[in-house]
Design a protein around this nucleic acid. Structure first.
Lengths: 152, 152
DNA sequence: ATCAGTGCAAAACATTTGCAGCATG
DNA sequence: CATGCTGCAAATGTTTTGCACTGAT
């Protein structure tokens, strides 16, 4: 069985894909990739801009969006939309490793990843049944997280 | 077994919920409700504005948004986001009747509803397992519809 | 008559694009 | 040293808000 992909692996993976696609290695692009590699879950473009601002290497907003689009095109970053009209972005590991979906707390906005084999199986079955060539899927569970439920 | 809820039933249901919540019965609001009742699948706010414009009763864009927000709050309309940064809105029937999810053609943008009991069961199981009070869920399958696949 | 409902115009918001200057290969 | 990369500012497109007027109860 293959070793689980790590964040570091992902940064390397992304770097390789960028190089293969003929991209040069600019400072802004690397900064975004490294930040994403460190993150566990999905981030907003504005989150990314803000976090980079606070760190040593600031990156212009337009550049953040441009880099994210490139990474998404290359398939190393996935876009997640959970219903608040903001796009979020997260690392996508090779061969579907660490594939997961999201729980969203409608109270505080927290985003928690989860995975379930039976759910994946059910989706695969549906995908086979319908008159579509299904290539991807998203599942979002909305509710209230334990913290918010306790506070109420 | 209960009779399936019809579009007409939904308009009535929505109207009752609005009345119960103390809303008056304005022309613009009714126009939006009636248009939604006729629709099978999710519409964007701008779709709604345009369709009403073409019909007898035009409704200002701001009003469309305001009405949709009220209806969503009352739980008679659901918001669907399929990844193109537009919110779509669709009727939500009482007691989860006609509950469904969506296939999205990434080529032409077509939206097709589907339902699957096993998928629902899998989701219910996950919902029980996680440290969240899950109240709702969305599933979106992305791919290429039969028409687009044929054209390619 | 009162207060909710509505339209219009302007604002707010994330995201995209144009262009000039910088830096990598 | 040529071309891709980046920042800045302006444009875009959707959604929201302010305010005055209309209409339902």
């Amino acid at each position: 069985m293959a070793r689980a992909t790590t964040s570091h692996d992902w940064a390397e993976h992304a770097g390789r894909r960028l190089a293969d696609a003929g991209y040069r290695r600019g400072g802004a692009r690397s900064a975004v990739v490294e930040l994403l590699a460190r993150q566990g879950c999905a981030l907003t473009a504005l989150d990314i801009e803000r976090q980079l601002e606070d760190s040593d290497r600031g990156v212009a907003r337009a550049t953040v969006y441009r880099v994210l689009e490139e990474l998404e095109q290359l398939g190393v970053v996935g876009r997640v939309e959970v219903g608040d009209k903001l796009s979020r972005y997260e690392p996508l590991h090779p061969d579907g490793a660490q594939h997961h979906h999201h729980l969203v707390c409608d109270r505080c906005g927290e985003l928690v990843p989860f995975h379930d084999d039976e759910l994946e199986r059910a989706i695969a079955t549906v995908a086979r049944r319908v008159a579509f060539e299904v290539s991807d899927h998203d599942v979002t569970l909305h509710g209230v997280c334990a913290d918010c439920a306790a506070k109420a």
